[in-house]
Nucleic acid binder design. Structure first.
Length: 415
RNA sequence: CGGGGUGUAGCACAGCCUGGUAGUGCGCAAGCUUUGGGAGCUUGAGGUCGCAGGUUCGAAUCCUGUCGCCCCGACCA
């Protein structure tokens, strides 16, 4: 992509309403704009990151045998009325009427809808286990949307639902999802902890949160530095920083986290309430045993920024960066322009996503924007070094650039 | 939903107390000069001062109401 043609409206000053680092940077770097409280436009760079996250999630879900599908976001009220959540969800549910005065709502989560699908379509143990997932916009009329993309009223979520013949089988499905989530969060390049949590209103028996560690996290968690133990302090208020780990006695450390994912075994809560049964090997009807697994995709865009930024801007992990490399030709020297175009072509031939800063602007502005946007690799092409057949290479998080020969520029990025 | 803020150009703000022609910086456009960490000068475009009432000869400014947005708290599968 040529920067001169890209819609990347960067700002020197942050709009005053933005306070949280990710919110400020999303606006300043031209990744997102606000439409209303908890409602954002994802501009091209923001959407590229969000799509990168979605794709990693999709690949790892598919690898477990889960299948992508899609439920409507606009839903008749019948299903939530049947489960009781039409009442219990309260004002958080976006409600509306259709032209025939029927009750409808926008989907905040889809347990009821998929349980209805399951009771219609699953009749035998031979169809199990089954795991279906979707990546879809969810709607919740939060009492207080806040911090940009961290808590929105409309947000992108991956939600998966598993169906099994028994509690034991459900635990296996849960373990599979847990392992898949670990691969997902590893690939996203985020520092995270798997945390025991209060299973809350879902009524589940087993659950874990995937917490992205960040200074601005809303959740207080303590974790062991030696073993895997970690817990949300919401779930156990007797623990705190410095107390011995319940499993290995090492002093616990406290972190702040942003909930990026949550996995549950639901059991037969919804299947019993809604009559989702199947015939077991003995021919007798029994309720499906369910699990559900969420990842807040749009929230992870913000969480990644919260965790990985500095005073100059974003610092994207390469796996989700909007572009891998930014090329900054300096000055109008023809050899510089020609070399920049050559590298631009070369990098793209290696399937590397490149942003060529071909704008007619001073070097300082290019560097500031490159840092702000957080592209992992920067190559500066200047007349002086080019005379020695060299360009400057600098990873976003490095303090100094190094000179590399023009022929090594592509490999510097690749490694 | 309680508490606290805040709405004036795309962004950040001043003006309001003490009513009298709508201001500044950044950004944007054009021109000249510049060119390695957000350049300088000149000229220019851009506003129903959140909205609705009221007071007044006259309201961004005073009064009443209302809406939006932000922060803290409560809430948050």
């Amino acid at each position: 992509m040529r920067f001169s043609k890209a819609f990347v409206p960067t700002l020197k000053e942050a709009p005053k309403d933005a306070v949280t680092p990710s919110h400020v940077l999303l606006l300043r770097a031209g990744f997102a704009r606000m439409v209303g409280a908890g409602l954002y436009e994802m501009l091209p760079l923001g959407l590229r990151v969000q799509n990168n996250i979605s794709n990693i999630v999709r690949e790892e879900m598919d690898a477990t045998g889960a299948q992508e599908f899609r439920m409507p976001a606009l839903l008749p009220a019948d299903y939530f009325k049947e489960s009781g959540r039409w009442e219990s969800f309260g004002p958080t549910l976006f409600r509306m009427k259709d032209r025939k005065d029927g009750d409808y709502h926008l989907g905040p989560t889809h347990e009821e809808i998929i349980t209805d699908l399951a009771r219609r379509e699953i009749s035998s143990h031979k169809q199990l286990p089954l795991n279906l997932y979707q990546i879809q916009t969810k709607f919740r009329d939060e009492p207080r949307p806040r911090a940009g993309l961290l808590r929105c009223r409309e947000f992108l979520m991956k939600d998966a639902y598993s169906f099994d013949v028994s509690e034991d089988a459900a635990r296996e499905s849960y373990a599979t999802m847990r392992a898949a989530y670990q691969r997902i969060f590893e690939r996203l390049g985020l520092d995270y902890r798997i945390v025991r949590a209060d299973s809350g209103a879902m009524g589940g028996s087993t659950s874990a949160e995937f917490q992205v560690l960040a200074q601005t996290g809303e959740d207080r968690i303590v974790a062991c530095t030696q073993c895997d133990f970690a817990i949300n302090l919401e779930a156990d208020e007797t623990l705190s920083e410095g107390k011995p780990c319940p499993e290995c006695k090492t002093p616990l450390e406290q972190y702040l986290g942003i909930e990026g994912g949550h996995i549950f075994i639901l059991g037969t809560h919804y299947s019993e309430k809604m009559g989702a049964h199947f015939a077991g090997t003995d021919g007798k009807q029994q309720p499906l045993v369910m699990g559900c697994y969420g990842i807040g995709i749009s929230r992870l865009v913000a969480a990644a920024i919260e965790q990985q930024h500095d005073d100059q801007g974003m610092c994207w992990p390469p796996s989700i960066a909007p572009y891998q490399v930014v090329l900054c030709p300096i000055g109008k020297d023809e050899t510089v322009t020609a070399k920049a175009e050559e590298l631009y072509t070369q990098l793209r031939e290696h399937n590397i996503e490149v942003l060529l800063d071909d704008r007619d602007t001073r070097p300082g502005a290019k560097f500031k924007d490159a840092d702000l946007i957080g592209i992992p690799h920067r190559i500066v092409i200047g007349a002086k070094s080019l005379a020695n057949n060299q360009v400057e290479y600098k990873p976003r998080t490095a303090s100094e650039a190094t000179l590399v020969s023009t022929s090594d520029a592509v490999t510097a990025v690749l490694k």
